[in-house]
């Protein structure tokens, strides 16, 4: 093992112990380690944004561009300038121009993605479960495919119904919710069950990921202790 690997290993070991000390109690070591992480990451992010975004997108093309091309590049520079100047409280209004630009871009990207990337394909997938070619593709499993299709439509409609009623109801609104069509209330209850199943699977997944992180840290600590004890 090289000396640099040993040094980084010891640093990683110490930082791990400092963070895991939180399991006993919130201590100064835990806070120091987290602040160290935030500081280093923030500095790195500045370097990254400048080196990987602003320089290649804005500065370097400016040097190589013709005069007409430079006029085009002035627009993002102007917008960025407005964003910076807008940090002065008296001139905050100016920053709303680039923010309006970003809002329009983000909203449109989100709408396009949601509609064409999720709503249409997933809706189509629900309908596809009722495709006769799919249902009768394997004669041995027709009943299973029909059951699958029924559960799919019931679960999706139920989950959407549950979203509708899932908000915490104020006392005054409760009566209004009860006045809604009973069929929707029934679907909402069914959806609650399906949502619970999905969230349970997500919970197991999140725990798995966190568990693997714990395993990794125990492996690092154990490995480091083993090296120290073996070297004594």
């Amino acid at each position: 093992m090289t000396s640099s690997a040993v040094i980084w290993g010891v640093i990683g070991f110490l930082l791990t112990v400092m963070i895991l000390s939180y399991l006993i109690r919130d201590s100064l070591f835990f806070r120091l380690a987290t602040y160290l992480l935030i500081g280093l990451t923030a500095g790195y992010l500045v370097v990254l944004l400048v080196n990987r975004v602003l320089l290649p997108q804005l500065i370097w093309p400016m040097g190589a561009a013709s005069w007409s091309q430079r006029l085009w590049l002035l627009i993002p520079i102007l917008l960025a300038g407005l964003l910076l100047v807008g940090q002065i409280p008296r001139l905050a209004l100016l920053s709303k121009i680039p923010l309006a630009y970003l809002a329009g871009l983000s909203a449109a990207v989100a709408i396009g993605g949601a509609v064409f990337g999720t709503l249409v394909p997933q809706g189509q997938a629900v309908l596809d479960t009722f495709d006769p070619y799919r249902i009768y593709a394997d004669p041995q499993l027709v009943w299973m495919r029909i059951l699958d299709a029924g559960v799919m439509i019931l679960g999706v409609v139920g989950t959407l119904s549950y979203f509708h009623f899932g908000q915490p109801l104020q006392e005054t609104k409760r009566k209004r919710a009860e006045d809604r069509p009973q069929i929707l209330q029934v679907f909402s209850k069914i959806g609650e069950g399906f949502l619970g199943i999905t969230l349970g699977a997500v919970f197991a997944g999140v725990f798995s990921t966190a568990l693997l992180a714990l395993i990794d840290r125990i492996a690092v600590i154990g490995g480091m202790l083993g090296q120290f004890l073996g070297g004594l």
Binding site: G117, P121, L212
Partner: peptide, 23 residues
């Protein structure tokens, strides 16, 4: 979402953690 919407013919594979997989 973006690639399905704008370039659906491009094959897309996912390598995801356990926590991302169910959804």
């Amino acid at each position: 979402e973006q690639l399905s919407a704008r370039s659906p013919e491009t094959p897309l594979g996912i390598l995801a953690t356990s926590q991302a997989a169910p959804l």
